[in-house]
Computed example of a mutant assay.
Amino acid sequence: MISTETEQAINTLFAELEDSWNRGDGEAYGACFTADASYTTFVGTVYRGRADLAAGHQALFDAVLKGTRMYNEIVEIRCYGPDAAVVIGRGDVAKKRPSRLSKVQTYTLVREADGGWRIASFHNTRRKPLMEAISFRFVPASAPRR
């Protein structure tokens, strides 16, 4: 069971993550992550460490991601003790909100010594609903039970 305080702190972290993206601020975006974070994009790029992902994202914010906004929906939060959580979400980035969020994301969060929650690991996958439907039709037992 997640405490109200923990849930609020995690929601605040996600609000900061979105705000920094929407402002195109790579340094603030990186501050949402641990110093040694790992970050895997949906195209397979892996950033290692806060400095790497902050610099990489600033370059992207200044070019192909300029003017985009982040859209997130937290699907589930699971706590593993008082200082660790896994968050499953859906999300996307675009100039305007898409009708359907196309990515599934997994975040591993930790509460650091200063009491703040930060993202230690992030993995982003583009969802392919048609491929899912075909797979589940031919192999029904492969469908998630929830």
Rank of each mutant, 00 (worst) to 15 (best):
144 P>H: 04
31 A>H: 15
1 M>N: 12
84 A>W: 05
81 G>F: 06
18 E>R: 15
26 G>Y: 08
30 G>F: 07
32 C>W: 02
103 K>R: 12
32 C>I: 02
132 E>Y: 12
116 G>T: 12
142 S>M: 13
28 A>F: 04
78 R>L: 09
19 D>M: 03
72 N>C: 03
120 A>K: 07
11 N>M: 08
83 D>S: 12
45 T>A: 03
81 G>K: 06
65 L>D: 00
51 A>H: 07
5 E>H: 09
24 G>H: 03
123 H>E: 01
65 L>P: 01
79 C>K: 11
80 Y>T: 06
5 E>M: 07
114 D>Y: 07
116 G>Q: 14
36 D>E: 11
58 Q>F: 07
97 R>D: 09
3 S>D: 10
34 T>D: 04
74 I>T: 14
3 S>F: 09
57 H>P: 04
15 A>M: 12
115 G>L: 02
11 N>S: 10
58 Q>S: 05
40 T>A: 01
29 Y>C: 06
137 R>P: 02
130 L>W: 06
98 P>N: 07
133 A>N: 10
8 Q>D: 11
104 V>A: 14
118 R>C: 08
53 L>D: 01
136 F>D: 05
103 K>D: 06
65 L>Q: 02
3 S>Y: 09
37 A>G: 06
81 G>N: 05
144 P>W: 04
126 R>C: 04
103 K>P: 00
46 V>N: 00
121 S>T: 01
54 A>R: 02
1 M>C: 09
85 A>F: 13
105 Q>W: 11
15 A>D: 14
54 A>P: 05
73 E>I: 05
6 T>S: 14
99 S>W: 07
124 N>D: 03
88 I>R: 14
34 T>H: 10
128 K>Q: 11
93 V>F: 12
30 G>Y: 08
110 V>D: 01
54 A>C: 02
140 P>Y: 03
116 G>R: 15
120 A>S: 09
118 R>W: 08
118 R>F: 07
111 R>A: 08
33 F>H: 15
27 E>M: 09
136 F>A: 06
15 A>C: 08
26 G>C: 09
1 M>L: 11
54 A>T: 01
74 I>Y: 06
38 S>R: 02
12 T>K: 15
15 A>E: 15
32 C>N: 13
125 T>K: 01
62 D>Y: 01
61 F>D: 02
77 I>V: 13
112 E>F: 06
81 G>C: 06
84 A>R: 10
130 L>R: 11
35 A>F: 13
112 E>I: 10
122 F>R: 03
81 G>A: 08
111 R>E: 03
133 A>Y: 07
133 A>G: 07
27 E>S: 09
60 L>K: 02
51 A>F: 03
55 A>Q: 09
88 I>A: 11
125 T>S: 11
102 S>P: 14
136 F>I: 02
11 N>C: 10
138 F>H: 14
120 A>T: 04
61 F>A: 00
46 V>I: 13
131 M>I: 04
7 E>M: 10
144 P>N: 05
5 E>C: 03
89 G>L: 12
5 E>F: 04
46 V>E: 00
115 G>P: 06
11 N>R: 14
86 V>L: 10
117 W>I: 02
107 Y>E: 03
41 T>H: 00
132 E>K: 09
112 E>A: 10
53 L>Y: 00
